[in-house]
């Protein structure tokens, strides 16, 4: 809040003085705009140009025609949306997307916070750096690699873990071959891959907390846990809220690499998500209109989720992402 106010003050002072026009702006800051142009070009080419094709969701896709002359789909253009919701495969994919992402959020979201708190308590700098670096590493592994790691570790016959279990006289655990254990394997790999990397933000926020607060707390006789609870966590609250809002937006999303790499036919009741459904029905099954409709639906729900989470958090007196 304080920071915002300061900004406003600065603006009030500066703006009337410099009523500069576009040209002057450009002349003065052209280097900055030049730098900005690269990401802008990226956004335009990969995010805005493709938006023109969103209309495929409302039209009957014809390969020989361009999108402006394709005929409209039935039901006022909503034919494919209605069709999608009649398809059991899509409904299953929708359920799985929500389920897996919700589990990711519930189990995975607190992990980096806890990790950052623990790291913060470590007195030996060298050890801390070392742990941090190791924890970041999985983030740089692609899901394909994690997928084969997963096979090497958890397969029923040849997986290391199950070999150990059977050699100790136990029955092999169906990590990858039965629905419920697979869901937890899936979520577990997700946490393993991302908790270290995601903790960076929190560590940075923790580094920004004024040491005065801790000193004052120590003077009042606060112990480690009390300091954590009364100083570190409350100071992290804005960061946590912002990240939570952003994560809520992903609850309908998610890429296809992870379920593809970790899933298999035996658990397809749970490993088929919207992204893999779109790939299979769209790219492989050439039902372009249907899958564009599904993709659009996914994005719209994602936006609604973000907006409402943002709205609620502002109502509750927190900073949103806007």
């Amino acid at each position: 809040m304080a920071a915002e106010k300061k900004e406003e003050k600065v603006k009030k002072v500066v703006v009337p003085k410099q009523k500069v026009d576009f040209k002057t702006y450009m002349r003065r800051y052209w280097q900055l705009y030049f730098l900005l142009s690269l990401p802008l070009v990226y956004l335009v080419v990969f995010k805005y140009v493709p938006m023109a094709y969103v209309q495929i969701a409302f039209k009957k896709y014809m390969i020989g025609k361009n999108i402006w002359t394709m005929p409209w789909a039935g039901d006022h253009g909503f034919q494919y949306f209605i069709e999608a919701f009649k398809k059991p495969a899509f409904l299953k994919a929708l359920r799985n997307t929500l389920l897996l992402n919700a589990l990711d959020l519930v189990l995975g979201f607190p992990m980096p916070i806890i990790f950052a708190l623990i790291l913060n308590e470590l007195p030996f700098k060298g050890f801390k750096k070392c742990v941090q670096t190791i924890a970041y590493m999985p983030h740089f592994l692609s899901w394909v690699i994690i997928g084969s790691l997963s096979l090497q570790l958890f397969a029923k016959d040849s997986g290391m873990v199950n070999m150990l279990v059977t050699s100790l006289g136990g029955k092999p655990i169906p990590f990858l071959t039965e629905n419920a254990p697979w869901v937890f394997t899936y979520v577990g790999w997700g946490i393993w891959q991302s908790f270290g990397w995601n903790s960076i933000v929190y560590l940075a926020a923790i580094a920004g907390i004024s040491p005065d607060l801790y000193e004052a707390a120590a003077m009042d006789g606060a112990g480690r846990f009390q300091k954590m609870w009364h100083i570190t966590l409350p100071s992290l609250k804005p960061t946590i809220v912002v990240l939570l809002i952003m994560n809520l937006g992903y609850i309908m999303g998610g890429g296809m690499e992870r379920p593809m790499a970790l899933g298999n036919r035996l658990v397809s009741d749970y490993s088929e998500v919207i992204a893999t459904y779109v790939y299979n029905a769209g790219i492989k099954g050439s039902q372009f209109s249907l899958t564009t409709a599904v993709g659009l639906f996914q994005s719209v729900v994602g936006i609604i989720l973000i907006l409402s989470a943002n709205f609620i958090s502002r109502k509750l007196g927190e900073r949103g992402i806007w």
């Binding site: 805005y48 361009n66 402006w68 002359t69």
Partner: peptide, 12 residues
């Protein structure tokens, strides 16, 4: 511009 760019190329 992107909308306009998608206009051409009709080979029906």
């Amino acid at each position: 511009a992107s909308m306009a760019a998608c206009g051409g190329n009709d080979n029906g």
